[in-house]
Amino acid sequence: MSKQYGYLALFDSAPAVYHAAQSVREAGFKKWDVLTPFPVHGLDGAMGLHRSKVPVFTLCGGVIGFFTGMFIAWYMGQFDYPLIVGGKPFFSPIFPFPVAYELTILLAAFGTLGGMFITNRLPMHYHPVMNYDKFRHLTDDKFAVVIEADDELFSETETREFLQSLNPEEIAVISDEEDE
């Protein structure tokens, strides 16, 4: 038996889904989402999303990168195998700076991409909304509001009526079952 995941309301334009998102937020739903084919400017505010946590990962990556760069130059040049080259010091924070700088950027970039995947819980092989028969349009030219059945305010009839009041193109029931 398939379990109901929630309702999906399909919209035709970015302004329509933006106003719908404002209404859903005002109605007090917590477990809901908006699916759009591109980042809609201002939708984060309409949904009341918090600031992304990705910068934390970037900062960690950058700090680790910088100190790795400095550490390897010190360890290899001064500690493990001191070798006189051109009468220059074995270690100084100046000459390995380009190396530390590049490693800062390298690990910060990995932190950013990794942080994006971690905060978004991707890669994800399956998600119930992919069962929707017009899912293909949600990465092309349509927009959707999805309210999960797990939400405290969810009710099969009232939520449906509420979504109907937002004037969507259609409302679909999304069930949580892999079709293969």
């Binding site: 998102a21 989402d33 908006v34 699916l35 759009t36 084919p37 980042p39 809609v40 939708l43 984060d44 949904m47 999303l49 600031r51 992304s52 946590k53 990705v54 910068p55 970037t58 380009p98 700088y101 590049e102 950027i105 910060a108 970039a109 950013t112 991409l113 942080g115 994006m116 995947f117 905060t119 978004n120 991707l122 890669p123 994800m124 092989h125 399956y126 998600h127 909304v129 992919m130 899912f135 949600l138 990465t139």
Partner: peptide, 30 residues
């Protein structure tokens, strides 16, 4: 990677994009 266009994802994605742009700028100059 199972991308589904969720706006909760776009929010993190846009932030990551901006950060990568910010990281690539000093990188390309360096």
């Amino acid at each position: 990677m199972g991308w589904r266009g969720s706006n909760r994802h776009w929010s993190n994605y846009e932030m990551a994009y901006l950060l990568l742009a910010g990281l690539s700028t000093p990188l390309v100059l360096s």
